[in-house]
Amino acid sequence: MQPHPATVTLREVRDGDVDELFWHQADAEAAAMADFPSRDRTAFLEHLGRIRADPEVHYRVIEADGVVVGNIGSFYAHGGREVGYWIDRAHWGRGIASRALELLVAEDPIRPLQAGVVPHNVASQRVLAKAGFVPDGIADDGYLLFRLDA
């Protein structure tokens, strides 16, 4: 049986979200899928502090049916405006990332937007395609690049 489609919302990060967000990124299997190393608590808190203090970063918590299930943001990196997201592995496969990206794209009017994804992360490639991102080459590190102009 398929899980029901979640009601997905984005909101500002609150101090009470920090522990949940830390544990999401600490999941070794999720980190391997994203090819993004987990941070220890100190490094995570420092990174999160920088993100939350930077007015150029559009950073949101993702809630599904009122539960914190991840984060998403847009920021300047690699010569352009990038998007990135992280969904708690327990909530993969429910369409949450797709809906969250749709909401973020609607909130952030800056174009173009770009994203990079490792070749083995086919699910993220589908999420980007559903949101209108198109393939835009391969980065020096092997990441597949995607771009949204509209």
Rank of each mutant, 00 (worst) to 15 (best):
S38A: 15
F75M: 06
L21W: 01
L101P: 04
D108T: 04
W92F: 15
A90C: 07
T42K: 13
G70L: 04
A6K: 06
R14V: 12
D15P: 09
R94G: 00
Q125E: 11
S38K: 13
A77I: 01
F146G: 04
V61M: 04
E63R: 04
D27K: 01
Y143T: 14
I87L: 06
R60D: 10
I72N: 01
R39T: 01
E102Q: 12
I87Y: 02
I96V: 15
L113H: 03
R50A: 09
S98A: 14
R14T: 14
M1I: 07
G79L: 09
R89W: 07
A123Q: 06
R60C: 03
E56Y: 08
D141T: 12
A129M: 02
Y76H: 14
R126M: 05
N121F: 02
Y85K: 05
R14Y: 08
A77S: 12
Y85Q: 11
E82H: 14
T42M: 11
R39L: 13
A64Q: 03
V127E: 02
D108G: 10
R50G: 09
G70K: 07
G95Q: 01
V57H: 10
L101N: 03
I72W: 00
G137H: 13
T42V: 15
Y76M: 09
L21N: 03
G16V: 05
I87Q: 07
T42L: 14
D136Q: 03
P37T: 11
D108C: 11
R126Q: 13
G137R: 10
W23F: 11
G93W: 06
G84S: 09
P135I: 00
E102Y: 00
I87H: 04
K130L: 06
G142H: 11
L21C: 04
L45N: 11
L103Y: 01
V105Q: 01
Y59F: 15
V83I: 14
V13E: 01
G132L: 02
A64E: 04
A31S: 14
M33T: 13
L145V: 14
P3S: 08
R11Q: 07
A26T: 09
H120I: 10
A150N: 09
A64F: 03
I72T: 13
A129Q: 07
R60Q: 10
A34G: 03
G79E: 05
A6F: 00
A123T: 06
V117E: 15
E29C: 01
A106S: 09
G66P: 09
D88I: 01
L21S: 06
D35G: 09
W86M: 13
A139I: 08
G73F: 01
E20V: 13
G70H: 07
G84I: 10
V13R: 03
D140A: 14
L145D: 05
D54N: 13
G142L: 08
V57K: 08
E102F: 00
F75H: 11
R111L: 00
F75A: 09
D54E: 07
G80A: 15
A150W: 14
R81C: 06
E56G: 14
L104D: 01
Q114E: 13
D40C: 08
G79Q: 02
Q2A: 12
D35M: 12
Y59A: 12
D65S: 05
V69T: 14
T9P: 03
P55L: 05
P3K: 03
L144N: 10
G66H: 04
P112T: 09
L21F: 07
R60G: 00
G95P: 00
A43F: 02
R14Q: 11
L48M: 10
D40W: 02
